[in-house]
Structures are given as structure tokens and as C-alpha cells.
């Protein structure tokens, strides 16, 4: 079975380590905050100027001056700090964030990522994504492995305009956990009940399959 959105978030959460500063992108990455393992402390960075983002507010706590990068109302966790956008991106671009999780339309075997624009169709802008992928060393891309029509999103070369070049090393899809190195995809884990053959069929870029591929555990 392909992973649900919640399972994707849960699997990413297993990569969290105690004391990590983490930036979570909009969509599935945001859900990761719900699955921080017990006994671990992480601090969430929100690119609009908040380090130490808390849960959504109660009705009484709603504050127009306190939002996240998705423009949703949020709260501050204990020990939070506030700053301007240049400071926020100094943290991001300067490599001070320990883990970045974001979505994508396509990734390729050279670690390129396309996530912000579909020419002629979708023009919204890159927001902070280009800074995030350029600045972070430890990035996990979460995405579906293939489109609804069965077209692979793990390619030899990205076809859409790039968000970043040669910057992605880990991809978690609804079917597999994959590492990118030496110009190839390397299969690390498969989703429960998903066969290696199925993953290989839906991976357009070169995929290295070790003799044993373990199932993800939840």
C-alpha cells in the first residue's frame, strides 16, 4: 500500500533528532510536527520570522500578527524568538537549520529539484523554497512517486524549471525512501506491501536496488 499523507509525515518524523532546528514546508511537511517522537525536542522555524512555532491557536488565542509561512494562524512555543525576514533567511541560507522538509513536482538523479512552477499553467512563485534548498545540507523531499497517470516524478533530468541544482540527497515518496548519490537513485526502504518491482517500474531515473530492501516501520 502506498503511504498516506500521515504516514509520510510519520516516516519523516523518524529522521528527527533531539535538539534539531527544523523548517517544514507547506502541505505534507507541516504534518510532521504532529509526529515528533516522544522524548525528543525540536524547534520549528517559520520563514516569515519565527523560531519556535507552536500548535494552531484556540479561538481565543487567534492573532493576526502571528502566522506561519502558509499564512495560517499559529502560536509560539516556549523559548520562541521573533525576527525579520533577512534574519530568517540568514538562518536558512547560512546553513543553521538542521533539517528542511519540503515538497516537489520532480527530482532527478543529479539532485535537482523542480517545485515552484509549471510553465503556462501554474505561476505562483518560489517563496522561500529556492533559499531553503540552496542553504540546507540536510533536506528531505516528500512527494508522490508518480502522477495519477502513472508518470514517474523521479527522473533522469527534471523537465520543469528548477528550484535548485544538485541539492537534494533524500526523497521520501508514498512508495519508497530513496537516497540520491553518484548520479543515481538508491533504494533505501519500501512502503509496507509495496514491491521493489513496482517501485522500479515507476522510477524513470536510474535506480540502484540493493539485494535486501527493508520495509518501512511505523
Amino acid at each position: 500500500m502506498a503511504l498516506s499523507r500521515e504516514q509520510l509525515a510519520q516516516r519523516v518524523a523518524q529522521e528527527l533528532q533531539d535538539g534539531y532546528y527544523v523548517n517544514l514546508g507547506i502541505g505534507i511537511p507541516t504534518l510532521v510536527a504532529n509526529y515528533v517522537p516522544a522524548g525528543i525536542e525540536v524547534m520549528l522555524q517559520s520563514e516569515n520570522g519565527l523560531l519556535g512555532m507552536g500548535p494552531f491557536p484556540t479561538e481565543a488565542e487567534v492573532d493576526a500578527d502571528l502566522i506561519n509561512a502558509g499564512k495560517q494562524t499559529v502560536t509560539m512555543a516556549k523559548g520562541a524568538s521573533l525576527f525579520d525576514s533577512a534574519e530568517s533567511f540568514a538562518m536558512i541560507r547560512g546553513g543553521h537549520v538542521d533539517l528542511t522538509v519540503l515538497g516537489a513536482f520532480e527530482v532527478d538523479v543529479n539532485g535537482n529539484i523542480a517545485s515552484y512552477m509549471i510553465p503556462g499553467k501554474l505561476i505562483k512563485g518560489m517563496g522561500g523554497a529556492m533559499d531553503l534548498v540552496a542553504g540546507a545540507d540536510n533536506i528531505i523531499v516528500t512527494m508522490t512517486h508518480a502522477s495519477k497517470h502513472g508518470d514517474s516524478k523521479l527522473l533522469s533530468n527534471c523537465t520543469l524549471p528548477l528550484t535548485g541544482k544538485g541539492c537534494i540527497k533524500k526523497v521520501l515518496t508514498d512508495l519508497a525512501f530513496i537516497e540520491i548519490k553518484d548520479g543515481k537513485f538508491h533504494l533505501l526502504e519500501r512502503a509496507p506491501g509495496v514491491s521493489v518491482e513496482e517501485i522500479a517500474k515507476l522510477t524513470a531515473g536510474e535506480l540502484v536496488i540493493p539485494s535486501h530492501v527493508s520495509e518501512m516501520k511505523f
Partner: peptide, 20 residues
């Protein structure tokens, strides 16, 4: 934007902050 009445320069958020 699509009709060409509005010119747009998409700029990464951190780059935009630093430009200012």
C-alpha cells in the same frame, strides 16, 4: 500577468529580503 498587462519578476524570498 498572463495577458501581459503586468510585468512580474519572481524573486526568492531570502534574496528579496537581502536585496532590501
Amino acid at each position: 500577468m498572463m495577458s501581459g498587462e503586468l510585468e512580474v519578476e519572481l524573486t526568492p524570498q531570502g534574496t528579496l529580503a537581502e536585496k532590501m
